[in-house]
């Protein structure tokens, strides 16, 4: 059984896809998502082998979403689109396959056969070449906001999740992993649990035991571990 996640913002489209996959058999639908943020969370949580991903979705399209996936456990992607404008680009983004909606069961069958044959994990190296992130999706109470990377002061990873702190000092929850953010943005890892935006550093204080402490332009502090201090000094051009 192939573990699959299905993602589409239109409920009837989701149920249609579910029916088709059920009919095809040998597929275990482990979850559904109605938008990119839900999808990222579901992928992190459920670690499916394949994601059937609609391209046209609110705020963050399917194409944009791939760049936000944690490269350490990236599933294979089968894109779905109503119109083949995006087909070429979809393959450039290293999709496994793409399907046109409404989906033809025979065509879906071929995709599933290929998936069955080729169960090797997605080539992580290819995904790394994806475009750098310009915005970070953050989920609030009932909204998703997109925070521009240059407006972020630092990112903190806690037991409760990854939080992005903007210039306003507000902490926003994001589904993206610290590793994704480190790889896809220009932010600098200064601690096992922290990324900092170098453009927002006001002060670097040195503390006992080879530790450091960053004071941001907004006056908030970010710890620097021994491991990253030397590299940080080099980055900032101080000795």
């Amino acid at each position: 059984m192939i573990r699959a996640l299905i993602v589409d913002d239109e409920p009837p489209a989701l149920s249609e896809l579910r029916v088709l996959l059920d009919e095809a058999g040998n597929i275990d639908i482990v979850g559904e998502a109605g938008n990119a943020v839900e999808a990222i969370a579901a992928i992190n949580r459920l670690q499916p082998e394949v994601v059937f991903l609609d391209i046209q979705m609110p705020r963050i399209s399917g194409l944009e979403m791939i760049a936000m996936l944690d490269p350490s456990h990236a599933p294979r992607i089968v894109f779905l689109t109503a119109h083949d404008d995006y087909a070429v680009q979809a393959f450039e983004e290293n999709a496994f396959d793409y399907l046109l909606k409404p989906v033809d069961p025979l065509r879906l069958g071929k995709t599933l056969q290929r998936l069955q044959r080729d169960r090797a994990p997605q080539d992580v190296g290819l995904l790394k070449r994806a475009h750098p992130l310009r915005q970070i999706p953050c989920s609030g109470q009932n909204r998703i906001s997109l925070l521009r990377v240059e407006d972020v002061e630092y990112v903190a990873s806690r037991a409760s999740g990854v939080f992005v702190v903007g210039e306003d000092g507000k902490e926003r929850f994001t589904e993206l992993s610290l590793r994704t953010l480190e790889e896809r943005t220009s932010m600098f890892q200064c601690h096992r649990q922290f990324l900092v935006n170098l453009d927002h550093i006001q002060e670097l204080r040195f503390e006992e035991g080879g530790l450091g402490r960053i004071v941001t332009l907004g006056g908030r502090t970010v710890p620097v571990s021994r491991r990253f201090l030397a590299l940080l000094k080099e980055k900032l051009g101080v000795d």
Partner: peptide
């Protein structure tokens, strides 16, 4: 809009069933 057209057909094929 082709997206509108094909999405609509997709929805139809789903609702025809249900």
């Amino acid at each position: 809009n082709p997206h509108f057209l094909f999405n609509t057909l997709n929805v139809l094929s789903s609702i025809i069933r249900s």
